[in-house]
Amino acid sequence: MSAIASEYLPVLLFFAVGIAFALIFVSAPIAVSALTGTAKPEAVKLSEYESGFPAFSDARAKFDVQFYLVAILFIVFDLEAAFLFPWAVSLHWGGESAWWAMMEFLGELAIGLVYAWKVGALEWE
């Protein structure tokens, strides 16, 4: 195994330990309450919470399209940030030409942001 890959093994082990902790924390109280008899499920207890009223419609209903817009804009600008990461740490190789190239890219995305702003994609009522 290469040296770089073996650096990631502790991270993988950390994931395994974290998942093990989470499994214990979720399953142990279920087992404990089942064994001690504190688990007494009943219809009212298991119904969804809606401030004491019976639920009068499905929760998974239509919601504001604005959330989709935010998600799409997020993908655009987060990818931009992801492109900036390698660029930022390798500017000493790229020099001025790399800087001007990225400025052009940022300028185009700034135009995109201005457009999204103008058409009201960033407005919340």
């Binding site: 109280p29 309450s33 504190t38 688990a39 007494k40 499920p41 298991l46 119904s47 969804e48 639920a55």
Partner: peptide, 12 residues
């Protein structure tokens, strides 16, 4: 919290 009952709603 550890000794409480885990409630999983019927609709979940």
């Amino acid at each position: 919290l550890f000794l409480k009952e885990t409630i999983i709603p019927a609709g979940a």
